[in-house]
């Protein structure tokens, strides 16, 4: 069982408070999307969950392998070692290392080390372009290939939960389509629980079970994918119509 419960979270940068009393949950095996336009706090929420932004109040409880713990105050590295993989915004690859080195660094977590060969083979099978480019520097690949590498690197840690921050940033629409399909494929293959922040409403809702709309750092609406799809609220809060 893997689940994440964020309760009454308050976070921000210095004097600027970005998240006000945010409560969300991700249940076992679900794909949950955080929707919202720029500057509403999607990335801040993901960053507070993984320890890149310090939250000032509330709780972030991760239940994994039957143990529950509060992630607040933990470093990203120790959160990864619990079994949470992060695909950061803007991909955050190691541009001067090769594709293969990037992937191997993804398997730094002690628990992932015995599975390195299997995971690597699977990554190459799922993303054949990475096999072709394994000796190439990651920084020399196209944006779409880099995003695939970021996703593959996250999977190298044999995660139970995947946190993805804006997978569509800077990608052509057709590539976004392919990325979203890949995320679904990987989720099913690994039995992952996924939390994804995304601006691209139509693409994100395609694979989501549920979603939250975040407006000015507050959850403005929560609902299932079907509800989100034809809800008047979406037009008001999200599309601004």
């Amino acid at each position: 069982m893997t689940s994440l419960r964020v309760s009454n979270l308050v976070a921000g940068y210095g004097a600027v408070q970005v998240l006000h009393d945010v409560t969300i949950r991700v249940d076992d095996g679900e794909t949950v999307v955080l929707l919202g336009t720029n500057g509403n706090g999607k990335s801040t929420l993901i960053k507070s969950i993984v320890g890149l932004v310090r939250s000032t109040a509330g709780s972030i409880v991760l239940e994994i392998d039957g143990a529950a713990r509060d992630l607040r105050g933990m470093s990203p590295e120790s959160i990864v070692s619990l079994g949470v993989a992060i695909v950061p915004e803007g991909r955050q690859l190691f541009p001067k290392l090769t594709v293969e080195e990037n992937l191997l660094i993804g398997a730094y977590r002690p628990k992932a080390r015995p599975d390195i060969d299997r995971n690597l083979a699977y990554c190459f099978e799922t993303f054949p372009v990475l096999r072709e480019r394994r000796r190439q520097l990651a920084g020399l690949m196209s944006g779409g290939e880099q995003q695939m590498l970021a996703l593959a690197r996250a999977l190298m840690s044999s995660p139970k939960m995947l946190l993805i921050d804006e997978p569509s940033v800077g990608l052509a629409p057709i590539i976004v389509n392919r990325m979203i399909a890949k995320i679904r494929e990987l989720k099913e293959r690994y039995g992952l629980t996924v939390l994804m922040a995304e601006q691209n409403f139509t693409q994100a809702v395609k694979i989501a079970d549920r979603g939250y709309i975040i407006v000015h750092g507050e959850i403005a609406h929560a609902g299932t994918a079907a509800e989100l799809n034809d809800n008047d609220l979406i037009r008001r809060f999200y599309l601004g119509l």
Binding site: V50, L52, S75, P76, E77, V80, S81, A85, I86, P88, Q92, L93, F94, P95, K96, L97, E101, L104, I105, G106, Y108, R109, A112, R153, A154, S157
Partner: peptide, 25 residues
């Protein structure tokens, strides 16, 4: 070694290394 790979990750992008689960400190 794996140590060297981790160090290279830190050199390239320390924040990304942290996010990838490299025990940077």
């Amino acid at each position: 070694s794996r140590l060297g790979r981790g160090l290279a990750a830190i050199r390239d992008d320390e924040l990304a290394a942290e996010c990838a689960g490299v025990p940077t400190l």
